[in-house]
């Protein structure tokens, strides 16, 4: 079995995986970070989005071995201790989540979308989140949250 070495939420980890193991399975099942979710099997829903070397990636679309040597951030690594990331805080303030299942992927996508773009428009947010499906919120409050979160991040 191949060995992968990567940094997850700032911590070096090493794991033996089957070659076919997806990054999301490594994260959830071997590293026990269950905040990253699996909502589909066709890379459509975005519940599994994490950051790999600073870019948002659907973790069901990448083999664990492809992430070898990378820096991975999951939803568990976003807050600074007890202090929520501005995007997490914006989701809370604007009621951008209901059941919470799509939320980790949605927030991780939103952080990437907002990085360097403090003045996103509603249209840019809606198009930018096209790869993340939410069945609960109707997106209205997610859009409000991302606009506010982007501002709070300050680019």
């Amino acid at each position: 079995m191949p060995t992968v070495n990567l940094t997850v939420n700032g911590k070096a980890v090493s794991a033996n995986v089957e070659a076919r193991t997806l990054l999301v399975n490594l994260i959830r099942e071997q590293l026990g970070l269950t905040g990253t979710h699996v909502g589909c099997d066709t890379s459509q829903c975005g519940a599994c989005v994490v950051h790999v070397d600073g870019k948002s990636v659907k973790a069901c679309t990448m083999l664990a071995v492809q992430a070898n040597g990378s820096k991975v951030t999951t939803i568990e690594g976003l807050a600074n201790g007890d202090k929520l990331h501005p995007m997490q805080e914006a989701f809370r303030e604007h009621h951008g989540l209901q059941c919470g299942f799509c939320t980790p992927g949605m927030v991780m996508s939103a952080v990437c979308l907002a990085k360097g773009h403090p003045n996103l428009t509603e249209k840019e947010v809606r198009e930018g989140l096209e790869g993340n499906i939410c069945r609960c919120t109707g997106y209205h409050n997610i859009v409000q949250a991302v606009l506010a979160g982007a501002k709070a991040m300050g680019g």
Partner: peptide, 17 residues
């Protein structure tokens, strides 16, 4: 504002899987 949000926003919800 919802009390359940913190756990969902930080990846600490507990779903069956």
């Amino acid at each position: 504002r919802r009390r359940e949000d913190r756990r969902f926003l930080t990846g600490r919800g507990t779903y069956t899987d």
